Amino acid sequence: MKTEHHEIVSKVPEVTLIFWIIKIFATTVGETAGDLVSMAMNIGYLISSIIFAVIFLTVVSFQINARTFNVFIYWSTIIATTTLGTTIADFTDRSLGIGYAGGSTLLLVLLMLSLFIWRNSLGSVSIQQIRSPKAEMFYWITILFSQTLGTALGDWVADTEGLGYATSALLFSAVLISIAIVYFTTAVSHTVLFWAAFIFTRPLGAVVGDFLDKPVAEGGLALSHLGITSLLLTLMLILIFSFKQRAARLSH
């Protein structure tokens, strides 16, 4: 009897410098696009979250059902998580009145719970072990929580703590540089550092996005939500076309 073998391939990209650069662009797009729909178009956080949730569920289904790594589907899904994360965080922090500290704490608990269940269920939260639809679902749920947490954390530091958008961007950049130094100079788990970096690129994108589109009186540049979102998406596409990304290697 002939046995058919199916090769298991990764559908997430290899983690390189260009991956992190595109990720920061994607998180910034998520902030400006989320603000464009919820605030500039005056749709509100709840309706905007429903719209972005439908978009997220659509693109993540394409991602999970894809047979191989597709750079455009992958990054579309990342943008969907970051725009949905923006409006969910704003709805939780502002509309529900939980506040930035309360929202950040709640989202941190949900993120840690997602990682804990994933680890207990499949034995690893490493991207080199994402070899099944179940692992992919854990991956995207965790990413959604991380993007939402990052939004709340960015707003908390910039607004509540009064650091402002520019200073907050420098702070989060310093955190990411520190994570990179630890990555290259210590034996700390690369999986732990990956998720730490993934979480902290989001508040960096959030405060950069706010710096670009918030009113001058609030410390921003008051650039057009639509204009800056379009520009960031264009720059992302240029990076994607200019630098070929490979699928991550799966560990045995």
Rank of each mutant, 00 (worst) to 15 (best):
R119S: 12
V125E: 07
W118R: 06
I117N: 04
A169E: 01
I238Y: 02
R94L: 15
V182D: 06
S251D: 13
V71T: 08
N70C: 09
S121E: 11
T58R: 09
T32A: 12
D35T: 08
H190T: 05
T105R: 06
G164H: 10
A169F: 02
R131G: 09
T16L: 11
S178N: 07
T142L: 06
E136S: 05
S49T: 04
V207W: 00
T81K: 02
L171C: 02
G164P: 10
I78H: 08
L17Q: 13
S173L: 15
G219M: 12
F200Y: 11
L36R: 05
A80S: 14
V109E: 04
I240S: 00
F25P: 00
K244R: 15
S173M: 13
A66E: 13
I117M: 10
A26L: 09
L204V: 08
R249N: 13
W195C: 01
M137C: 10
I50L: 14
I98V: 12
L171T: 01
V182H: 03
S104F: 15
D93W: 03
T105P: 03
T16C: 07
S121F: 14
A166Y: 08
N42W: 08
K214S: 14
W156Q: 06
F194S: 01
F72R: 06
F62C: 05
I73P: 04
T160H: 13
T142V: 04
I228Q: 07
L122Y: 12
I228E: 12
T160C: 07
L84V: 02
T27Q: 03
Y100V: 01
L171K: 00
V29R: 00
I22Y: 05
T83N: 03
A80H: 01
H190P: 03
T234A: 15
G162S: 14
H225T: 12
F116Q: 05
M236H: 01
L108E: 04
V216I: 15
T151F: 06
V59P: 02
S48F: 07
A217D: 13
I199S: 00
L113P: 00
T77D: 08
L46R: 10
V109F: 14
V125F: 14
H225A: 13
A89M: 09
I143C: 07
S126L: 14
I47Q: 09
I64D: 04
G150E: 01
V182R: 04
F56Y: 13
V15F: 05
V192Q: 12
G44N: 11
T83V: 15
L239N: 03
M137K: 10
R67F: 15
I55N: 09
L226D: 03
N70Y: 12
Q245R: 05
L233T: 00
D213S: 15
S95I: 10
G103H: 09
M236W: 03
V182G: 02
G162Q: 11
T82G: 05
I73A: 07
V109T: 07
G103P: 07
V15E: 03
S251N: 14
T191A: 13
V125A: 11
G97I: 08
H5L: 14
T32C: 11
F184A: 10
V157N: 02
N70L: 08
M137H: 09
S114H: 06
L237R: 01
F25T: 02
Y45G: 06
D155V: 05
W195Q: 01
